[in-house]
Amino acid sequence: MSLPAACLVVYASLNQVHRLKRHLYQGGVYADLVRAPQCLGLRGCSFALRCDAAMVPAIRQASEELAIEIRGAFTELSDGYMAL
């Protein structure tokens, strides 16, 4: 049985990710904070929330509520990333 894939939801700035992470945590959703890989082809020096796929809708909703732009969302694959 394969593990559910992790997802990356990418933002422009560490500050934004911290804001979202705290907001989600207060709502009972926990996501990791990681540096976004350069190979995603987004604008440089991004940070991301790393989470289970099931959390992505909550993250999108939180981003909308806080008016923080998502730069991209991806599923982690064994050999790279796939855009959601």
């Binding site: 422009a12 700035s13 934004q16 604008r43 440089g44 020096c45």
Partner: peptide, 14 residues
């Protein structure tokens, strides 16, 4: 340098 939008020649808007 702001640690964000490094490919841009202008300051971030946020």
């Amino acid at each position: 340098g702001t640690g964000s939008e490094s490919e841009s020649s202008t300051q971030p808007e946020f």
